[in-house]
Design a protein around this nucleic acid. Structure first.
Lengths: 333, 333
DNA sequence: GACCACGGTGAAAACGGTTCAATGTCGACA
DNA sequence: TGTCGACATTGAACCGTTTTCACCGTGGTC
C-alpha cells in the first residue's frame, strides 16, 4: 500500500480512503491512486484488514457430514449468494449432530473470525450448541422446525408439504394413506407426520400406524416390504424420495404394481426422481432458495446487536410435483 | 495475550512461545501460562497470526455448482481431513467450468490468503485457469484425466473402471457391450469410453457406436430408448449411475426386462443405486478417499517451493460392485 | 576462579491495513 | 483584508500476533 501511495504521490491513508470509498478525496486524486494500484497490481491484504476492523468478510457454514440431499444443495445456494454480497464461505462439517462436535465446529469458525454462521440445524441439539457461540456472532439456523430459540430461522413448511401429498392421494380416491416416516427425533420428520395425520383426520380417514427409519432407501425397502404384505394399503406417503425409492422396490418385488395397485408419493424432488420406476410424484423443496434466504437473513442481522429484534422465522412453501407414481385406486376385481 | 502474560507474570513473547510449542520455555513457566490462558479463556487471534506469518491455516476448494454426486461427496472427505490437519476449508463455487469464473474463484481465495487450493477439475479449462494463480500458492487438481500440467493430481482410474465393467459383461457371456457415455469433452467421460472400447477390442468383440449426453437420467433415458429399440443390444455400460437410471426406465418402458433381456452396469455407486429396479451393478469410486488423498497431497506440497519435485499423479482404483442388473444373456427363444 | 555455552526470558520491530486527531489549503463571507 | 469553516491530506497510534536479537543467570569445564 505504501508503494501505491508513493507512486501516486499521496500518503497511504489516502489510498485507504480510495479503497474504502470514503468521501473526502478529490476525484482527480482518486483516479491517480486507482491508476497506481493498477500498475502495481496491488491487492489489499485481507488479514491486515480483518485485524484492524475485526471483520473478516467470511461466513461460516456448519454442515452435516453425510450425503443427505438437502444439506448439500443448500451449500451452493448459500455460497453463490454470499459471493454476490462480497463474502467468502468457510465450512465446518460435523459427523453427527451431537452437542460436542457442533460446539467444536462453532469454535473453529469463531477462531477464524467469521462474521456470522449459518448452521444446518435439522435437530434441536444444533441450536443448543449454537447458544454457546461467542456473543456478537450472528447465527442463523436453517432446517428443522422453526424452534430456533434466540436465532432467526429458515425452513420449508414440512407440515404443509405433507398435507399436500396426503391431500393429493386422498383426492385421487384412496380411502386412507400410509406413511413411512424419517427418524422420529428429527423435527422435520415429525412435522411431516403431523401434516399427514392432520389431513387424514380432517378427512375422517383412519390413521394407520406410522413406521419410521432412517432417511435412506434401505429403510424404505424394509418398511415397504411390510406395507406390501398388507392388501389394505393402496397409498403410501414417504418422508423423502430415497425412502420412496426403497418402497418402490419393495412393492415391485412383492408383485404390487405402482400406481395400479399402490400409489406412492415422496418428498424432496431429488434431481432424478422423475426417472424412478415409475416416475415419482413428490413434494418439491427448493433448497437453493432456502440457502439464499438464510444468507439474506444473516446479512440483515450482521450489523445489529444481538437480541435487537425478535428472531424471524422464514418459511418457504413446498410444491407438489405430480408424476406417475400416484393415481386413482383401481377397482378390486 | 498481554493480559495472559501479565497474569502469568511473563512477557507476551513467552506466551507466544507456549502457544507455538517453542522449545526454550521452562515446564513450570509453561504450566503457569497455560493456567492463565485457561482462566482468562484466551483465544489466539488468527487474523493477527496470519498477518505476521503469512499463513492462514485455511485451504480453498474450487467446486462446481451443480448436483453432480462426485464433487459433493468429495467436499466432506477433504474437509474432515483438513480439520484433522488443523486447517479450515473455504469454498468458492463456479457455475460453469469456463476460464473466467474459475479465475475469479482462484482470485477470491487468494485474496483471503488461503495457503493452498484444491480444485475440482473435471475439465482441462480448470487447470488452465489454475495456472494463473499467484506464484507460491500450492494447487492440487482432483478429477479429470491426470493431465495436471504443473499441478499434482488425484483421480480415479476411469479407464480401469470401464474395463472392469465391460469385462464383467463380456465374461457373463454377452457378445458385445453398448455404451452410453457422458459429455464428450469431459476427460473422465473419454477415459471411460477408452477403457470400454479397449476391452471390446481386446476381446475381439464388435465396437458399437457410442452415444453421449449429459451426466443425468434424462440423457440416459433418451439414449436408452434408442438402445431399447435395437434387439441386438443385450448389455449396456453407462457412464454413471444417473444415466443408468434413465436407461433402466427406458428399457422398462420398451418392455425389455433387466437383466433377463438386457444387462446394465453403471458407474459411481451412488448411495441408493442398490435400490434401483433392479439393484444396479456398478463401479464404485470412493470419493471421500479421493478427497483425503487430495488433501494429503496438498499438505505435502505446502511448504515446498513450486516446481520443487515433479507433480505427482495419484490414481485410486475403482471397484466393481456386482448386484442384479447384470446377468448372463438369456437364450433367445 | 574465570570463561563459555546455553536455556530461559524480555524488548522491539515487523506484518499491512484502518482510523482518529491534527495539519494544511483554499474559498467565502463579513 | 482578516477570519472562519469546509474540505483534502497527513502523521501517528493501534489491531494481536510472530520473530529476531540481546540479555541474564546458571552450570559445566579447563
Amino acid at each position: 500500500m505504501r508503494d501505491v501511495a508513493k507512486l501516486a504521490g499521496v500518503s497511504h491513508q489516502t489510498v485507504s480512503r480510495v479503497i474504502n470509498d470514503h468521501p473526502n478525496v478529490r476525484a482527480e486524486t482518486r483516479e491517480r491512486v486507482l491508476a497506481a494500484m493498477r500498475s502495481l497490481n496491488y491487492r489489499r491484504n485481507l488479514a491486515a484488514r480483518t485485524l484492524a476492523t475485526r471483520e473478516s468478510h467470511t461466513l461460516g457454514i456448519i454442515g452435516f457430514e453425510t450425503t443427505l440431499f438437502g444439506p448439500e444443495s443448500m451449500l451452493y445456494g448459500i455460497e453463490s449468494a454470499a459471493r454476490a454480497a462480497g463474502y467468502l464461505v468457510s465450512v465446518a462439517t460435523v459427523r453427527d449432530l451431537a452437542h460436542r462436535p457442533v460446539l467444536e465446529a462453532v469454535d473453529r469458525l469463531a477462531q477464524h473470525d467469521v462474521d456470522g454462521i449459518i448452521a444446518i440445524a435439522p435437530k434441536p441439539s444444533v441450536i443448543m450448541a449454537l447458544t454457546h457461540a461467542p456473543a456478537g456472532l450472528a447465527c442463523v439456523a436453517v432446517g428443522g422446525a422453526g424452534h430456533g430459540g434466540p436465532f432467526p430461522t429458515v425452513r420449508v413448511d414440512n407440515s404443509a408439504g405433507a398435507r399436500l401429498a396426503t391431500r393429493h392421494l386422498l383426492d385421487l380416491g384412496h380411502a386412507t394413506v400410509h406413511h413411512v416416516a424419517g427418524p422420529p427425533d428429527w423435527p422435520e420428520s415429525q412435522a411431516r407426520v403431523e401434516g399427514w395425520r392432520e389431513t387424514l383426520y380432517a378427512a375422517g380417514a383412519v390413521v394407520p400406524p406410522v413406521t419410521a427409519g432412517w432417511w435412506d432407501a434401505a429403510a424404505g425397502y424394509e418398511q415397504g416390504l411390510r406395507l406390501a404384505a398388507d392388501p389394505k394399503v393402496t397409498a403410501v406417503f414417504c418422508a423423502n424420495d430415497r425412502i420412496a425409492l426403497g418402497v418402490l422396490r419393495a412393492m415391485h418385488e412383492a408383485g404390487r404394481r405402482v400406481p395400479q395397485d399402490v400409489s406412492i408419493v415422496g418428498f424432496d424432488d431429488m434431481p432424478d426422481s422423475g426417472y424412478f420406476l415409475p416416475p415419482l410424484t413428490t413434494v418439491h423443496q427448493d433448497f437453493a432458495e432456502l440457502g439464499r434466504r438464510a444468507l439474506a437473513l444473516l446479512l440483515r442481522h450482521l450489523g445489529r446487536p444481538p437480541g435487537d429484534a425478535p428472531p424471524e422465522d422464514v418459511v418457504v412453501a413446498p410444491l407438489l410435483v405430480p408424476r406417475v407414481s400416484a393415481a386413482a385406486p383401481y377397482p378390486r376385481h
